[in-house]
């Protein structure tokens, strides 16, 4: 393996194509940590945005007018304002209002770090889309299918767990996957508040090595592959969930 990495040092010496994240173990570690951070941030946001989506879709069916209005207000605000400004708002504005806590070395540090704020902000952003996705999925289940289940004596809960949810989930899946892919791309915004994800680490490396061109091309390829693999997995999943003749 080491000879493989060393080959890139030779490549640099011979051609000037500088890929330190391959031949330099320190940069390699940084880049790998950045990759893991991107994955971690994506997974955390995915989890919370789906929870927000489910709760939001449920609250949107509430009979209380103001509950529905607040949920709709949340959706519209998060969908129609720049996610980067949302992130700044959370990190700088709300972050500065929270109390400081004492850290292990006796110093003061914010209650929540940049990773936590990035996770919160992006979860709310993606969650706003998920509420709409889940709700339109539920609405896409025909009333007549629900009626048929009622005529067979299913109670409300059984209709929900046996008929509505399995069908709605299949309707949601493409949009949900699309949103997930967008979420992974949006994690790059965390760069702006210095969360050490892939873009941030690449920036560190090109600052140290003055190899912007190589790092830029590498980043493009890396995200292309990451998102490409994700899209491929999601499409296979969608296909395996497909019911003959349902959906189109």
């Amino acid at each position: 393996m080491e000879t493989f990495f060393e080959w890139f040092r030779v490549l640099y010496d011979d051609t000037g194509i500088n890929l330190p994240f391959l031949y330099d173990s320190y940069d390699r570690g940084r880049m790998f940590d950045g990759f893991l951070m991107t994955i971690k941030l994506s997974l955390v946001c995915l989890f919370f945005s789906v929870i927000i989506g489910i709760i939001g879709a449920w609250l949107q069916g509430s009979s209380l007018k103001w509950t529905r209005r607040i949920i709709n207000g949340y959706i519209q605000i998060f969908r129609n304002t720049p996610p980067l400004v949302q992130l700044y708002f959370f990190y700088f504005a709300i972050g500065s209002l929270l109390p400081k806590v004492q850290n292990d070395w006796g110093g003061q540090e914010p209650l929540l770090g940049s990773f936590a704020w990035a996770a919160i902000s992006l979860s709310f952003f993606a969650g706003a889309f998920n509420v709409e996705i889940f709700r339109s999925g539920l609405e896409a289940v025909p009333e007549s299918t629900v009626e048929a289940a009622e005529a067979l004596g299913f109670n409300r809960l059984q209709v929900y767990t046996d008929i509505t949810l399995p069908l709605a989930f299949r309707v949601c899946l493409p949009a949900l996957n699309n949103n997930l892919v967008n979420l992974v791309k949006t994690t790059t915004l965390a760069y702006a508040i210095a969360v050490p994800e892939m873009l941030y680490e690449a920036n560190q490396i090109w600052s140290d090595n003055v190899n912007v061109t190589e790092m830029m091309l590498f980043l493009l390829v890396a995200y292309f592959l990451l998102v490409g693999v994700l899209v491929w997995v999601m499409n296979s999943w969608e296909r395996s969930m497909k019911i003959p003749g349902y959906g189109s």
């Binding site: 892919v181 791309k185 949006t186 994690t187 790059t188 915004l189 760069y191 873009l199 912007v212 061109t213 830029m216 980043l219 493009l220 995200y223 292309f224 998102v227 490409g228 899209v231």
Partner: peptide, 15 residues
């Protein structure tokens, strides 16, 4: 389509 907007922005700025 698969590349993050911010990365494409960096790409254009630097290259």
């Amino acid at each position: 389509r698969n590349s993050p907007w911010l990365v494409l922005l960096f790409f254009a700025m630097f290259l």
